[in-house]
Nucleic acid binder design. Structure first.
Length: 454
RNA sequence: GUGAAUGUAGUUCAGUUGGUUAGAACGUUGGAUUGUGGUUCCAAAGGUCGCCGGUUCGAGUCCGGUCUUUCACCCCA
């Protein structure tokens, strides 16, 4: 059916059941954020393009959704750019706004813009959709929600610790087994330095990020193709083959980076974080993984990634420290650290594992049959009393056949039906039917309320 | 952005080497002595076969393009 309406690729509608389950994820995450003292903020779906461009690297710029200028957008187009087919220049001429790509950069803008109104260190959370013009795939959408918590204006590693605690608690409450991977940008920098190729940091991280996926030989091959010398690669080997406990790994790294200051810093910070971790006893395993290299180029300190241990899926939560994100917007010296829960992927994981709790507390408990006329008014009164007692109920809007009304209750999985027609009304009573076992009882309104009070 | 697969009623799918009015199941709607659902029986509605173009006497079926969905790469939540 070609005429059937549709939605843009990579976007989704959510049916009631899905929406309820998504809310369960959001409220779970939100309640943990609040428990640790994070405050909510919201920012607009669109930002000025100048705020977004250049913050996510060249790849990220290509994935930004741009909003066409309103009115006659051809006004500012210079014909030369058109003739040259210079998409980049044309783009900036016809579009000045874009949909946000994540919540972190808009947050940085927010902090700089409102710096005089905020109390630092500022802890905020934000749960809003973001948009990426990516090609959709499994677990990858063009519109998806991020649930971010960030602390800005504090360099303490206690913040990193707190974020790890939050991750632990969120996934604990959701009943998911996960692994937290931790790395440090400085360790990666030190690695590049060790190889004598500090300028190849990006190539290096991109390549070793794939270690899990394509294996060591292919990674080495890729490094070679990027023009990294065999000698340099050889110096990298002990790190790529790093094994054992976190402390073992740190020991090897400490030796390796003895003469590299950034490396020593990195080792020291990771060591300190792990020490803090011992004193709070979280359930989730935290693993130092040198192959963890998050793509975003603003991370400068600890980087964090969470993977499901039960379902094959990209990372479901990520984050890290960025020393100078606000610097781009003219406020330097503001260190921040944050994490982002990928609600949509968490949904997919919970769905695959069938881990959603059966929660129908808030669903309609009772359907009141509508017989029309005075009977409908009588039912209306009962409904009002039920609602005042906190029992969710609804009246069938039309005086349709009883059969139809019963079928409606059945399809909606409403557990009880109240049948109150002329005979019940004259007695001041009602018939309560349990749809699960089919039993019925004749009750007064008072008896009904006390039955549902518990 | 690169490479590949896919697309037929609301949904899941049939549809023979191209050949009359394109089928099933489930779902939907109505009915089976007009106050009783989930089971059963009967009936009906619902498709310009993703879209555009081409080959052919004839296309759901073959070819090209386009869009959608899915997968891998890139990147990422």
């Amino acid at each position: 059916m070609a005429q059937k309406p549709s939605i843009p690729k990579g976007t989704r509608d959510f049916m009631p059941e899905e929406a309820i389950r998504r809310n369960y994820i959001f409220t779970t995450i939100q309640s943990v954020f609040e428990k640790y003292g994070y405050q909510p903020i919201e920012t607009p779906a669109m930002e000025n393009l100048s705020t977004l461009l250049g913050k996510y690297g060249e790849e990220g710029d290509k994935l930004l959704f741009k909003i066409l200028n309103s009115g006659d957008f051809t006004q500012k187009v210079d014909s030369q750019a058109w003739e040259d087919k210079d998409a980049l220049r044309l783009g900036t001429q016809v579009s000045e706004k874009g949909l946000r790509y994540d919540l972190t950069v808009p947050f940085a803008r927010f902090v700089v813009q409102h710096q005089n109104e905020l109390v630092f260190p500022f802890k905020r959370f934000q749960m809003q959709p973001v948009w990426r013009a990516d090609r959709p795939q499994k677990g990858r959408y063009r519109e998806f929600y991020q649930c971010d918590a960030d602390v800005i204006g504090s360099q303490s590693l206690l913040n990193e610790l707190e974020l790890l605690q939050i991750i632990d608690e969120v996934f604990g409450r959701l009943g998911l087994k996960v692994l937290i991977k931790v790395n440090h940008r400085k360790l990666l920098s030190a690695l590049a330095e060790l190889m004598g190729a500090p300028d190849k940091l990006i190539d290096l991280t991109v390549a070793i990020d794939k270690l899990d996926k394509i294996g060591l030989p292919s990674v080495l091959e890729e490094l070679r193709s990027k023009g990294i010398t065999d000698e340099a690669i050889a110096s990298l080997l002990p790190v790529l083959e790093l094994k054992g406990s976190n402390t073992d790994k740190l020991k090897v790294l400490a030796d390796l980076f003895e003469s590299i200051p950034v490396g020593r810093d990195g080792v020291e910070e990771v060591r300190e974080l792990l020490r803090y971790l011992e004193s709070v006893a979280i359930q989730t395993e935290v693993e130092l993984d040198l192959s963890l290299a998050r793509g975003l180029n603003y991370y400068t300190g600890i980087i964090i990634e969470v993977k499901s241990l039960e379902v094959e899926m990209g990372s479901i939560t990520g984050g890290g420290r960025y020393d100078d994100l606000t610097g781009i917007f003219g406020l330097s010296g503001m260190s921040g650290v944050g994490i982002s829960f990928g609600a949509d992927r968490i949904y997919d994981v919970l769905l695959q594992l069938n881990r959603f709790p059966a929660q129908h507390l808030h669903r309609t408990q009772i359907l009141l049959v509508n017989f029309g006329g005075d009977d409908a008014l009588y039912a209306l009164g009962i409904a009002q009393e039920l609602r005042e007692s906190g029992v969710p109920c609804e009246i069938y809007p039309d005086a349709a056949k009883l059969k139809k009304q019963m079928a409606y209750a059945d399809k909606r999985s409403i557990p009880y039906v109240i049948i109150a027609g002329e005979s019940e009304r004259k007695e001041g009573k009602l018939t309560l039917k349990n749809l699960h076992d089919g039993s019925q009882q004749l009750l007064s309104v008072g008896e009904l309320l006390s039955q549902f009070q518990a």
